[in-house]
Every structure is written in C-alpha cells, then in structure tokens.
Design a protein around this nucleic acid. Structure first.
Lengths: 194, 194
DNA sequence: CAATCTCGAAAACGGTCGTTCTCCCACGAT
DNA sequence: ATCGTGGGAGAACGACCGTTTTCGAGATTG
C-alpha cells in the first residue's frame, strides 16, 4: 500500500498546490489553504514536502513537464513542418481559452519570486529554454533559417502575457498571423539563396 | 514650506517604494523596508499613503506615466514614420540593458496580485492598453494596415519577458528584426492594394 | 522660563504564515 | 481486555507584517 498511496497523496497535494499557486499567486496561498484543498493533513503534507519552497519547486517542475508534453502532443497531430509551427499558436489559443487561464505560471512565478529565490528563477529560465529548444527543432525541420526561432519565441511569449492581462485569447490569433508572415519571408529567403 | 516639503516627501517615498517593489516584488517588501530606504518615518508614511495598497497603486500609476513618457521622448528623436516604429525596439534595448532590469513592472504585479487585487489588475490592463494605443498611433502615421499594431505589441511584450528571464537585452534586437519584416510586408500589402 | 506643540524612533497590537507539537481515537497483537 | 502504535485534527509557537500608539526630545510661543 505504501508506494501506491504515497504517490496518490503526492498527486493530490500537487493538484491542489498547482490550482492555488497558479490561480492566486504563490505568496498569497498559505499551507493551510493547500491542506484544506487537498484534504491531506498538515503532518503528511510536510512528510511529502519538507517545506513550502520544495512544494513550490515541485509544482513548477511538474507543470513544466506537462505543459511541454501537451504542446508536443497537439503539434504531433500535424505532419507538414510549416503546419507544425503554426499549430503551436493554435494550441496557445486553446490554452488561453481555458477557464481560469491566468498567464504563464513561470513568468508569474519569476516576477513574484525571481528576485528572492534563485531556484524559482532557475526553473523559470529552464522552462523557457526548453520551450525555445522545442521551437528551434520545429524550425530546423521546416528548413528555414534558425533566426526564425527567436522571433517565434517572442510572438508566443507576448501572446501569453497579452492574453492574460487583456483576458482574451485573441492574441494567439494575432501571433499566428505574424508567425505565418515571418515563416513565409524566411522560406522565401532560403529559396532565394538557393 | 508645507506644500513643497510634502511633495518631496511623497517623492522620496515613491522613489524608495518603486525601487523595492520593482526590484523584489510587492509582497516581498514590507513597509518597514520602505521606511528604512526612504528615511521617512512610519507615521509620515501613513499620512501620505493611508495603506500599503494605496502606495502600491501610486507606485504603479507613476511608473505607468513615466514609462510611456520616456518611450515617447525617445521615439520623438526620429522623423520618418517607419523609423519611429522601429525606434520603439531600440528604446526597449536600452531599457533591458539597465542594471536592475527585471521585466515589466505591470506584468510582474499582475502575475503576483492580479488575482487578489482588482485595482492592480485594472492598472496593469490600463497600462497595456495605453501602450497599444501609442503603437496604434505610430502605425496609423506610417500608413500601414492597423492590424500591424497587434503584431508589434506581441513582439514588444514577448521581448520584455524573454529579456527578463534570460537576463539579456538581445530579445529587443530580435523583436526589431521581426518588426522590420512585418512592417515591410504590411507596407507591400498597402502598395499592392493601391 | 514655562507651557505647548511637533515630530521622529520605536514599541505595541492584532493577524497571518510556515512549521511543529499535542492530544486523542482507531486498530492490531497478545 | 490491554497495551502499543500510527495517524489525523487542530492547537501552539515563533516570526513577521501592516498599522497604530506611545514616548520623549527639541522647537515655538508668550
């Protein structure tokens, strides 16, 4: 029983922590709120995560992995390299449309705690690096110049914050429009050079 | 004496509050830290701002006004409408290069407090709306389609967060490159339509 | 000089937070 | 039935935060 139950307890804790940390900000959520939301008593909570800091890090790491996995899963429903790039922005639109969307959890945690917690800053940076690497792979597969990667990153990041603050998913469409234009120009570049 | 000294006291408070709130995040900064940094005793501090919330709002409103004023001042050193648009990204590069740069104070405050404080959320939204309106004016003056505005907004916002998390001002250059491409395409659009 | 007022330094207060500890009950072994 | 044990609910603890109050020193006025 110990192994299996330990895992589900950890899941329940992380589920509650993620909903609360992402939805209200990290410092606005006390351990008591996580206890109430998860139904896991305080003692067990601290057995699984010896401090709030470690729980915050676990929340960010799990969200990092799942976010990139979900993105890749959506992109993988397309075949053409160009469509795969544009599919990133379709997925952003779906994400922005979810109820409770409140921007990128890593941008938010960096803004809130990046200056006081090195580990939070590091995790946010690692997450953004991983996202950039993923886009770089898509760009390489499409046979367009590598510099397109950084431009696509900016469109995606800008769409996240603009969608969060404006409360609308539309920025994803604008980002996709711009990405299509940049992709076309980059493709023309490589064709011209040939 | 009362008028003048009251103003300089308020300035000193706001200067200290801005440096601390922006540099460490709002909830990480206590009123005592602002007292120490400003040299203004607690009693006077609460005479000028009756609560921390009102001080936070005053910090954001002053930063909002100054940020847009400084941006416009830089843009105004250029004449050609296209150069004025691209100058926005040059100014971003200068801003990102400042020591202590830690991203957009409004994105940060929205991520930290947007869910718990309606006024902070409103001020962040108003700031981003004002920035968008400013870009829309530049776009209109350049005789390019209005839809370019939203694309430029995304590049600028994405550059802010990417520069903050990566710790490099380079995203401003990438954003400018992308903006130049999008501007050229938009211009070709309007010329073709004529 | 005495009475009054001003104002800054810091203590105090009520509340909350992260973390630990206590108490008590259910249950299993003998 | 009794003892021990594990675990859950929540009290307790120390620290800190936003805010108010106290207190004393120095300036001001008659």
């Amino acid at each position: 029983m110990s192994e299996v139950e330990a895992e589900t307890t950890e899941q329940r804790i992380l589920d509650a922590a993620e909903e609360l940390f992402y939805g209200r900000g990290i410092q606005s959520v006390g351990m008591d709120a996580i206890r109430t939301a998860s139904g896991v008593p305080l003692k067990r909570l601290y057995q699984n995560f010896p401090s709030k800091d470690t729980l915050v890090e676990a929340y960010l790491r799990r969200r990092d992995a799942r976010w990139l996995r979900d993105l890749a899963q959506h992109v993988d429903t397309y075949d053409s390299p160009e469509q795969r790039i544009l599919a990133v922005f379709d997925w952003l639109f779906l994400w922005f449309s979810e109820q409770g969307f409140r921007g990128c959890g890593f941008i938010n945690s960096f803004g809130e705690l990046g200056a006081t917690s090195q580990s939070v800053a590091d995790i946010a940076k690692a997450h953004k690096d991983a996202f950039r690497r993923y886009l770089a792979d898509l760009v390489a597969a499409a046979d367009v110049p590598a510099w397109l990667t950084d431009q696509l990153v900016l469109l995606a990041e800008g769409a996240m914050t603009t969608a969060a603050i404006s409360g609308s998913p539309e920025p994803a469409r604008h980002a996709k429009d711009a990405a299509r234009t940049l992709l076309r120009v980059a493709h023309a570049d490589v064709v011209t050079a040939a």
